[in-house]
């Protein structure tokens, strides 16, 4: 059902964990649906310097979380915002059709984390000026 690439990320997820002093945090999905994930980012010089994930969900949810952290790490925020659900699925050499919608949430979580960073960053700037 899953590609070897998906299983490899399920077995050895990259960047799993939390960043306690994260610059941006994005949570999408909910436990009622069976998939929920949180992405933490650390930003330095407009780049994603560090990124970690926590995921409750099926194999696809865990593999897409792991993959999106690999795709986003080291990218500028603008580049990272352009990463789509499709990019994540392609990098995993495909997902079963039923998983494309429900479990492929990782790109959304990344985008929410970046928006969270922008919000906090603007607020900080506002205080300073």
């Amino acid at each position: 059902m899953y590609t070897e690439k998906v299983m490899e990320h399920f077995r050895n997820p990259r960047n799993m964990g939390e960043i306690p002093d994260a610059d941006g945090i994005g949570t999408v999905g909910n436990p009622v649906c069976g998939d929920m994930m949180t992405i933490y980012i650390k930003v330095k010089d407009n780049r994603i310097n560090d990124i970690k994930f926590k995921t409750f969900g099926c194999g696809a949810a865990i593999a897409t979380s792991s993959m999106v952290t690999e795709l986003a790490k080291g990218k500028t925020l603008e580049e990272a915002l352009k990463i789509t659900r499709g990019d994540v699925a392609n990098a995993l050499e495909g997902l079963p059709p039923i998983k494309m919608h429900c479990s492929n949430l990782a790109a959304d979580a990344l985008h929410v984390a970046i928006e969270d960073y922008y919000k906090k960053h603007k607020a900080e700037k506002g205080v300073k000026t």
Binding site: F10, G34, C58, I62, I98, C102, S103
Partner: peptide, 27 residues
């Protein structure tokens, strides 16, 4: 979540099924 438990069991040679019917036509 059930399916991730099933995948892990499968890797260890154990077949079970999931209450979440994740491998079935509905999630």
């Amino acid at each position: 979540e059930g399916e991730s438990i099933l995948l892990s069991l499968d890797m260890m040679g154990v077949a079970a099924s999931s209450g979440s019917a994740c491998t079935a036509k509905t999630l």
